[in-house]
């Protein structure tokens, strides 16, 4: 098999496995899996910025929330239908990322991390400030009848799973196309050596801004889909914890690998779920996982696999 065929075969196999999963796993896990796929889209977005372009952001919760609240508020208060609201959520994520990027990308390293953290904090506080509309930390639910897309009832388990899978598949294929394109290679070049890349005639600022905007598109879409599929919009998704979770999922699965975000989100979800049965020290699990990863497995699960055996893994 040539490299390209092998890569596409692997990723299509993963999608087929996900499509067949509800037939074999109990409904409880199918619902979990739907949630994991939506959150994995968020993580894939984070991976485009952090994994491929080297932008360590601590503000991605803002982009997730931008999509979630744009969609949620338009449906709940604006009377929009699900389709246009989903599109608006996706664009809100990309738009906020673009504006934040214009400012924050003037900084690098630790300063970039703090600036994105601060913008996200301002966003979180803004949600609380407009508590009449957003109901603050408590959040709000979306009416059942508003949650239909193209005539499909998103509330039932089967359609919800299919919708989550369709979204995830689109995200995965988009990501694969991106990283195998020339643009994707330039993003990696910016991560590896920004000054060299500039002296090869590429504008690193533009490359980073593109990566962050695409990243925001993914995050916004994930937020919007979460609101529609699970019917809940809440400020907890805008807290720094969700920015950290995105970082954790990507680190765990393997930063700069296409399937890493899914693997990381899946493993972490069940790790916390499993630990939750033994102890309620979930914060400890998250904290310890971060420290162990950064100390001993900085390339994550798939990154390690790529280094050891599968050099062709994108």
């Amino acid at each position: 098999m040539t490299g390209g065929v092998r890569v596409w075969a692997l990723h299509l196999a993963v999608l087929v496995a996900l499509a067949l999963a509800p037939l074999v796993v109990p409904p409880y896990h199918a619902t979990n899996l739907a949630r994991i796929m939506v959150l994995a889209v968020f993580a894939m977005g984070y991976n485009i910025a952090f994994g491929y372009t080297g932008l360590l952001s601590l503000g991605h919760a803002l982009l997730l929330a931008a999509g979630m609240y744009a969609t949620g508020l338009l449906v709940a208060h604006g009377g929009w239908t699900a389709g246009p609201a989903l599109l608006a959520g996706a664009l809100a994520g990309a738009g906020v990322a673009f504006v934040v990027g214009l400012l924050a990308l003037r900084t690098t390293g630790a300063a970039f991390m703090i600036v994105t953290l601060m913008f996200a904090q301002a966003g979180y506080l803004t949600i609380l400030y407009f508590g009449d509309l957003t109901r603050g930390d408590e959040g709000f639910t979306l009416a059942r009848e508003a949650r239909t897309l193209f005539g499909l009832d998103l509330v039932t388990d089967a359609t919800r799973y299919s919708a989550a899978l369709a979204l995830f598949a689109a995200g995965l294929i988009g990501c694969l196309l991106l990283v195998r394109s020339r643009t994707g290679r330039v993003l990696v070049a910016v991560r590896e050596n920004s000054e060299r890349t500039r002296m090869l005639g590429y504008d690193p600022f533009r490359a980073r801004l593109l990566a962050l905007t695409l990243s925001g598109l993914y995050a916004g879409t994930a937020g919007a889909a979460y609101a529609l599929l699970f019917g809940y919009v809440g400020a907890s998704f805008a807290t720094v914890q969700y920015s950290v979770l995105a970082l954790l999922w990507v680190l765990l699965g393997g930063a700069g690998t296409v399937l890493g975000p899914l693997v990381g989100t899946l493993v972490m979800f069940y790790l916390v779920d499993f630990a939750g049965n033994l102890t309620d020290a979930t914060l400890f699990v998250v904290g310890a996982a971060l420290i162990l990863l950064i100390l001993f497995a900085r390339t994550g699960l798939l990154g390690t696999l790529r280094a050891r055996a599968l050099a062709w893994l994108p």
């Binding site: 390293g109 630790a110 970082l247 020290a281 979930t282 420290i291 950064i294 100390l295």
Partner: peptide
Amino acid sequence: ILRRLDYAPEAVIVATIGLGYILQQGALS
């Protein structure tokens, strides 16, 4: 932790986020 990371700025950020969660959990428990 930090010395093993050779004080690489971004690694230290990730590690101290983790440390913060552990301290929070300790206080909560």
